[in-house]
């Protein structure tokens, strides 16, 4: 019998993110604002690239989004982006779509988690 994972990884590693922005709520808000504009744009480019089977663009979009997610301490979404970027090396359309679905489900709850983090940052 497999042991049960006692604490699932958080959506955002708050301690890491707050240290990275030096506990600056203003900067965190600014980063979230950038995320709200940039992330949907890259996600839409990724969907389009997968639809067209353009693997080079898939890898590029994934790489950029992974960088963003890393900066925000979004641990789980970063791992899903890395998996999707890896899938970009194979031409298996079904695998790509399934990796995309996993990725989308990971990023779905990201924004509320980030906004919750703002409240914990300094003034």
């Amino acid at each position: 019998m497999q042991p049960k994972d006692p604490t699932p990884e958080p959506i955002v590693n708050e301690a890491e993110l707050l240290a990275r922005v030096d506990n600056d709520a203003g900067l965190l808000r600014e980063l979230i604002a950038i995320f709200k504009v940039e992330f949907p744009r890259h996600l839409s480019e990724l969907r389009e690239a997968i639809g067209q089977g353009n693997l080079k663009s898939v890898r590029k979009s994934c790489h950029t989004m992974r960088g963003m997610l890393l900066s925000l301490g979004a641990t789980r979404a970063t791992a899903a982006a890395a998996q999707l970027e890896q899938s970009g090396d194979s031409s298996d359309g079904a695998e790509l779509k399934s990796a995309l679905a996993r990725f989308e489900s990971e990023v779905m709850n990201l924004l509320p988690a980030l906004e919750a983090c703002v409240a914990k940052a300094g003034p």
Partner: peptide, 18 residues
């Protein structure tokens, strides 16, 4: 230099503070 605007801004602010 970074094409990811978010990471770029974070880096910029960190370095300005330094």
């Amino acid at each position: 230099a970074d094409d990811d605007v978010l990471s770029l801004r974070l880096l910029e602010r960190t370095l300005e503070r330094g």
